Amino acid sequence: MAQIKIYGLAQTLDPIRAGLSDTIHSCLVDIFRLPVDKRFHRFFRLQREDFVFPGDRSAHYLIVEISCFEGRSAAAKKALIGALFERIKRNHGIASHDVEITITETPRWNWGIRGVSGDELGIDYRVCI
């Protein structure tokens, strides 16, 4: 399970939203081995006055927050971060300097999904990689 929040300026996100979602999801499928049909993305399209960031970032600055079940190796998380930087740059022309990524893991019992806690939820993929 992974839920993704993407923050950026509306003027930047609007033209690339669908493609950026595809890019991020492809990384999660390839690296975290999430099922193709498990896509949970939320876009936070901000106006310039609502998005304060350092002056050395451009209007393309993005923050990608990934919340997921715990259990993946450090190597898998580093591979995901590397793939996100590479594919976002290749597919959308956004420099790695303008992208920040955080991964927050929590125990499955801290999630509530479809009326049960996450540790009681039957999932059809492995979390530990």
Rank of each mutant, 00 (worst) to 15 (best):
G82N: 10
G122S: 14
A18P: 00
R108Q: 13
E120G: 03
N110F: 15
L9G: 15
G71W: 03
D50I: 02
V116W: 04
I4H: 00
L121E: 13
I24W: 00
I123N: 03
R114Y: 08
T12H: 07
R57N: 06
G112T: 06
I66G: 06
E86K: 13
A83W: 02
R33E: 13
G122H: 12
F51S: 03
R126T: 09
A83H: 07
I66K: 07
Q3M: 14
V127P: 00
I101Q: 12
A95V: 01
V36K: 15
T104D: 12
D14M: 02
L28R: 10
E100V: 12
I66C: 14
R72A: 04
K78W: 01
P15R: 12
S96C: 06
K78R: 09
A59M: 00
E100T: 12
L34F: 10
Q11I: 09
V127E: 08
R108G: 01
D56L: 04
R17L: 10
R17Q: 15
V64N: 11
E86N: 07
Q47F: 04
A79M: 06
I4E: 04
I24Q: 09
I113H: 05
A83L: 06
I81Y: 14
R114M: 12
V52T: 10
K78E: 12
L28G: 12
E105R: 03
G112L: 08
F51E: 05
G71L: 07
S58G: 02
E86T: 08
Q3W: 15
H97K: 14
I94T: 05
H97S: 13
I103G: 11
F51K: 05
I81G: 08
G71D: 10
F32K: 03
I31F: 04
Y61M: 08
V52C: 02
R45T: 07
E49W: 02
F32W: 09
T12A: 14
K78V: 02
I103P: 10
C128F: 03
F32D: 03
L121C: 02
G82C: 11
T23G: 12
P54F: 04
S58A: 01
V116T: 13
A75Y: 01
R108Y: 00
A10D: 13
C68H: 12
I4F: 11
T12I: 01
H92G: 05
Y7M: 07
I113K: 01
P54Q: 14
G82R: 04
K77C: 08
R45V: 01
D50Q: 13
D56W: 11
E70N: 14
D14R: 10
F85T: 00
F53T: 06
A18F: 09
D30A: 15
I31N: 03
R39Y: 04
H92I: 06
H60M: 00
K78D: 06
W111H: 11
W111M: 10
L80Y: 08
I94H: 00
I81P: 02
Y125F: 15
E65C: 09
R17V: 11
K78H: 07
I94C: 02
F85R: 04
D14L: 05
E65H: 09
T23V: 04
